[in-house]
Structure formats: C-alpha cells, structure tokens
Amino acid sequence: MTEGNFVDYVKMTVSSGNGGKGSVHLHREKYITKGGPDGGDGGRGGHIILRGNKNLWTLLNYKVQRHFKAGHGEHGSKGRSTGADGEDVFMDVPLGTVVRNTETNEIVLEVTEHGEEVILLKGGLGGRGNWHFKSSTNQTPRYAQPGLPGEEMQITLELKVLADVGLVGFPNAGKSTLLSVLTSAKPKIADYEFTTLKPNLGIVKYRDFQSFVMADIPGIIEGAAEGKGLGHYFLRHIERNATLLFLIPADSKDIGKEYRILLNELKRYNPELIDKERFVVISKSDMLDDELIAEMSAELDKDLDGATYMFISSVAQQGLQELKDKLWQQLNN
C-alpha cells in the first residue's frame, strides 16, 4: 500500500431514514359498505450500520464519498399492510476504527472485531395505522401516526492501527529498515527525517508458522504531544499496540536522554501508554565492537531506568532472531 492510499482520518455526514406514515383506510368491499379501519403501519427508516472488516487497512473508500443516507420507510396501506422498511446502509471499516461526533468530539463507538455490526444511527419508527386506534367509542378512527424522522450526524472516522508491536523512535532511527528486514513490508527508506509519513504494517513470521503484526509509526519529536512535527496525527496509532519497541540508534549522542524524551511524550499524550509492555533496542550496532558494547551496556543499565534492552543491526542482520524471540515472549506473557 502506498502512502497516498493510507487514509486514517475522514469527516463525513450520515443520515438514517425517516419512518413511513401509518395509513388511514376503512375496509370497503362490494357487499361491505361500512367496514372497520384497516390502515397498515408505516415501515421503519433505514439504519446506518458500521461493520468491521479485517481485510481493510485504510479509510480510503470514504475519501471521496462524504455523505451516506439510508432509505426511508414506505407508508402503510389498506388491509393492514405494513410498509417496507427503508434500506439500511452498511459501512465497512477497518478494525480499530473510532467514530467521533464532529461537533462535540465525543467518541460514539469503536469497531474492533471482524464481522461486528454496530448501529450508528437508527432509522425513524414507522407510524401506526388507524386500525390501532379503534375503540368502543370510536369505531372508525380517521387518523394515523406519522413516521418519526431519521437522525443526521456529522462524524469523524479515525483509524487506530491494530498491531501487536509498535515501533517508537525519533525520525531516521531505522524503524522502517527494521520493519523491512523482519517482514515483507516495503516502507519508504531514505537518509533524512520524516521519511515515513503514514504508519506501515508488516507481518513478522515466527517459529512453527506463527506470526505477529508490527507497525512502523512516523517518528516522534520533542513536543509531539502538543502537535509538533506530525503530532497527534500518529500518536493515536500507538494506543492499540500491545508492546512498544523503542528504537534508538547506537550513534545517538545520549541514548538515555532520547529514551526519556520518547517516554515523556507518550505519557503527556496518554498516561496509560507507559503501562504497556516496552522494550528498548539499540539499532545500527554493527558499527560497535564488543568492548564498546560492554562499556555502553554499563551506562545503559543506569540510564534506561532498568528497562530491558538489546543491541541489533538491521543491515548486518545481527540479533534479529533474538529480538523476535523476546517480542514473542512479551506478547504471550
């Protein structure tokens, strides 16, 4: 999937259908000149229904069409015939989609399971026909209920990527390179900051035909929680990850400081994020010899506040199997 096709934020208008009117009708046949009321009920309006689809990874389908309207219920008719219900509108969305009321910014619902169907807006109820209102004192009621109107809402669809492992790090830390060697994903890789502008997903193959999903999130910078850099645009994707993999290059000026900045940005955005399982990886370690790794390890034991860490090299394929083993162990604790 190219970056241009990854859409994770869409605003739109949705409307459910109006209910049909109840019928005002008196039964008449050739030899029945004064039959009783037999007006049928109106049909209900169509619902707006969101449906989870595990085969979708983007909201691209809703980039162009921004208005969805369900069908209206048909009116009741004679012979107590109920009008047909309005046609429901099913909107297939990727797993991890959050629906917000655009005006209030409140979360209306979330879709996280395949095949899950959630009614976003209910159609209006159909009105009752005049046969419902017959009584001993009113044998021929000449009124019926109108159908109830449907609902309309301005909504915002947000996609929070569902992945087992989320890669967290500064721009140009090597996250895309690691994803490309562990999975079949082909993210854009270049030697400048913010190469990755949209999340990339890849499936990491593990032993005995097992696998887990890894997400490469655009790089974090200091102040991201306030919207600097790509800000909130990508931080919401980290909320769905089971394990956070902090990636810091070996040539960083201060690995401990970078780790604390990253951790602080996550905490400021959502304090619950720091409760997730996390693991620190020192990338680009093929430029280090054993003596230098030993010296750095002694410092990291103090600088990383006891966090688990390891050295790898994506380019030299060093430590990758051990990394997969540790991630698998964390995911299945």
Score class of each variant (00 low, 15 high):
residue 5 N to W: 04
residue 11 K to Y: 11
residue 12 M to W: 10
residue 16 S to H: 00
residue 18 N to F: 11
residue 23 S to G: 13
residue 25 H to C: 07
residue 27 H to Q: 15
residue 32 I to A: 12
residue 35 G to W: 10
residue 36 G to H: 10
residue 36 G to V: 07
residue 40 G to R: 00
residue 41 D to F: 03
residue 48 I to T: 06
residue 49 I to T: 12
residue 53 N to V: 12
residue 65 Q to G: 10
residue 72 H to M: 09
residue 77 S to C: 14
residue 77 S to P: 08
residue 90 F to P: 08
residue 94 P to Y: 04
residue 94 P to F: 02
residue 99 V to Q: 05
residue 102 T to H: 07
residue 102 T to G: 03
residue 107 I to N: 09
residue 108 V to R: 10
residue 120 L to E: 04
residue 132 H to G: 09
residue 133 F to M: 11
residue 134 K to D: 08
residue 135 S to Q: 11
residue 153 M to L: 15
residue 157 L to C: 08
residue 169 G to P: 11
residue 180 S to Q: 13
residue 190 A to P: 11
residue 193 E to G: 13
residue 193 E to N: 13
residue 195 T to G: 07
residue 195 T to W: 05
residue 214 M to D: 02
residue 221 I to G: 03
residue 236 R to P: 01
residue 240 R to Q: 11
residue 241 N to P: 09
residue 245 L to Q: 02
residue 246 F to G: 00
residue 249 P to W: 06
residue 251 D to W: 03
residue 253 K to T: 13
residue 253 K to W: 11
residue 256 G to S: 02
residue 256 G to P: 01
residue 270 N to R: 13
residue 279 F to C: 00
residue 282 I to C: 04
residue 285 S to V: 04
residue 287 M to R: 14
residue 293 I to F: 09
residue 296 M to D: 03
residue 299 E to W: 05
residue 304 L to M: 03
residue 309 Y to S: 02
residue 322 E to F: 03
residue 325 D to Y: 02
residue 326 K to S: 07
residue 330 Q to W: 10
residue 332 N to E: 03
